[in-house]
Design a binder for these strands. Structure first.
Lengths: 206, 206
DNA sequence: TGTTTGACTGACCGCGCGTTCAGTCGGCTG
DNA sequence: CAGCCGACTGAACGCGCGGTCAGTCAAACA
């Protein structure tokens, strides 16, 4: 039965609004300072209601993170799977990142928090187990695409994983800067800058 | 009177060991999860003792951050002020970063935490006021060096600030990766990789 | 219409934090 | 050597958190 019952629709709506609220509050206060009380108020429900849909705070944050990152991964996949030259591919990947984080400013901070887990060693470990694969996956996919370009002789041979790290974090910094700007730069300008840097560097050639 | 009295020496030693302990605990548990109790135990003093040297937790963390970042800035200044071509300059700056974070692994996490402040808006603002200048300063100095190289025609003209951001965050990612490795890569390898990327990109030229 | 149900609420609990301060004690002073 | 000083301690406090659950009430049911 593919049709959703009224109850299912209501449930999904609740879950989505609580997750949205979670993102906004974490974006505002930071991971550790985001309280269940404030998330509940933001979502327009009572604190207890959240516990009807999520076992505890940890599960709420994990599920919220998963929902959002899955969406990002899907968008990047589209860009990465296209069988095109490395230059338009890098452009497409950078554009996907800029678009996504532009549309989901709130998510960005949750994303950074998850990459730098807190608390007792055991919890850090669990959070890393859950988040690191998503991140490494993203880096690894780019690294694979770069490796293939190296084999094809499009780009010179270097450590593909470190190159991917460099590209992703470098552009993350530019995204961060862009998000802080009042009048964000045009997408294309930053995409051009990043792509140009990666491919040709900055040395003047005479 | 340049000579330090016995009391001053003891005081400075206490302050230094408490700050060292603070760095280690934050490195282990993260900014928000680092408790005064654990910092005190790590430093081998009672919790109350910390309050003889620091007004509150906030001041402790701020002062600890300042002490460490000042040292980093000094080491980078040496590299940046040298009047040499842009290539050896970038090499020297990258090397200074790698050296510093290699010697002060603990500091790295405190550094990242300070860049992404938590809590109520007002506290975030204060932390940003206190930390952002240090960071922007570092980026700006690199941007200035790059601007000068652009004027001299050594490198092509792009947005110097964004280029500096890209370089610093990209290499930060590589440092992070290196710190996680069991057998860290040789310094020179990463410095070569980063410098090569920035100057010449990765496109194969035939 | 009287009854049942269960989604939702929010006062409450226990815990662990940052912070305080009365008390301790080794060493200096007169 | 008695008396004092002040660096140091750690039990105790208040607060605010995550999590609980007895109570509420609108909608579904009979």
């Amino acid at each position: 039965m593919p049709l959703k019952s009224k109850e299912e629709v209501v449930q999904e709506f609740r879950i989505a609004s609580i997750q949205d609220a979670t993102m906004r509050v974490i974006a505002r206060k930071g991971m550790a300072a985001a309280t269940m009380q404030e998330i509940a108020e933001e979502a327009g429900v009572a604190k207890g209601t959240i516990y009807l849909y999520f076992r505890d705070r940890e599960e709420l944050v994990e599920k919220t993170f998963q929902t959002a990152i899955t969406q990002l991964m899907n968008e990047i996949d589209v860009a990465i799977e296209q069988d095109i030259a490395i230059e338009p591919k890098i452009r497409a990947i950078m554009k996907a990142h800029l678009d996504f984080f532009g549309r989901n400013r709130e998510f960005f901070r949750l994303y950074l928090s998850m990459r730098m887990p807190e608390g007792p060693a055991e919890r850090q470990h669990r959070q890393t187990q859950q988040c690191q694969p998503q991140y490494r996956n993203r880096v690894q996919r780019l690294a694979d695409a770069l490796s293939r370009a190296m084999e094809r002789g499009e780009i010179r041979t270097v450590n593909a994983y470190k190159l991917a790290l460099f590209i992703i974090e470098g552009s993350t910094a530019i995204i961060l800067e862009r998000l802080a700007e009042d009048a964000p730069t045009q997408d294309e300008t930053d995409v051009d800058l990043i792509t140009g840097l990666i491919l040709d560097g900055v040395r003047e050639r005479r």
